[in-house]
C-alpha cells in the first residue's frame, strides 16, 4: 500500500530499553510502523491535529473511520519505542481516493486526561464517529460542534466499550417518566 519501509524496531511496552530515537522511522514528526502491510502513524497528542491536516493536504482527504480502543489488560501491544502506551487509543483510518491508498493513525490517550482535539474542522464526516467514541469510551473531543450522545440515551451512565464496564451486570436504565 505504501513504499514506507516497515523495518522499525518494536518493543513491548513492559520493557523500556535505552535506544536512541533516531532508530525509529518518522513521517511528519510521527513514528511509523507497519501492521499486516498497513502503514500506521503514532503521533503525540499535540501533533495529532496538525498531522491530520498535513495528511489531508497530502491527499488523504477522507476520514473513513474513527474509533476508540481500550487496552486495559492487554500487554501484547507493540508500539515504537518513542511512544509510551496509554490505556486508550484513538484510531483514525484515512483514505486517499485519488491515489487509492490508506493510512492509519493510532493516538495514545490517557485515562486521566481523555481529551483530544477534534478533527471535525478538517473532516466534517468525523462528527458522528467522534460522538460514538465519546459514548463508548468517554474520549472527549475539544471543539466538537455537537458533543451529545449518539447511540446511547442522553442520560446513560458509563461507557459500555470500556473493558471495566462489565457485561455481567448491565443495569437496565430507563428514562424517567414524569408522573404520567
Amino acid at each position: 500500500m505504501s513504499d514506507l519501509s516497515p523495518a522499525v524496531e518494536e518493543e513491548t511496552e513492559s520493557e523500556q530499553p535505552e535506544i536512541p530515537e533516531a532508530s525509529v522511522e518518522m513521517l511528519h514528526g510521527s513514528a511509523v510502523t507497519s501492521a499486516a502491510g498497513q502503514t500506521v502513524l503514532h503521533p503525540t497528542k499535540d501533533g495529532y491535529h496538525d498531522l491530520v491536516q498535513t495528511l489531508k493536504d497530502e491527499g488523504y482527504g477522507v476520514c473513513i473511520d474513527l474509533c476508540g480502543a481500550d487496552y486495559l489488560g492487554n500487554e501484547t501491544r507493540s508500539l515504537p519505542i518513542t511512544i509510551s502506551g496509554e490505556r486508550f487509543e484513538l484510531v483514525v483510518n484515512l483514505l486517499d481516493v485519488h491515489g487509492s491508498r490508506r493510512i492509519r493513525i493510532r493516538l495514545q490517550v490517557s485515562e486521566a486526561d481523555p481529551v483530544v482535539a477534534t478533527i471535525t474542522d478538517i473532516h466534517p464526516g468525523a462528527e458522528a464517529m467522534e460522538r460514538e467514541a465519546n459514548d463508548m469510551f468517554g474520549l472527549e473531543f475539544e471543539g466538537h460542534p455537537d458533543p451529545s450522545p449518539i447511540l446511547l440515551p442522553d442520560d446513560w451512565q458509563g461507557h459500555p466499550l470500556r473493558k471495566d464496564f462489565s457485561l455481567g451486570r448491565i443495569p437496565v436504565q430507563f428514562k424517567a417518566v414524569d408522573g404520567r
Binding site: A35, A36, Q38, I64, D65, C67, A69, G73, N74, E75, T76, R77, S78, V91, N93, L95, R102, R104, R106
Partner: peptide
Amino acid sequence: SGEVYTSVESPRGELGCYLISD
C-alpha cells in the same frame, strides 16, 4: 496479537472492520 483494518464494498458503501487481537 496485532491490529488490522479491512474493507469491502458493500451495497451501501465502504464496510470496514477494525480488529485488535491480544
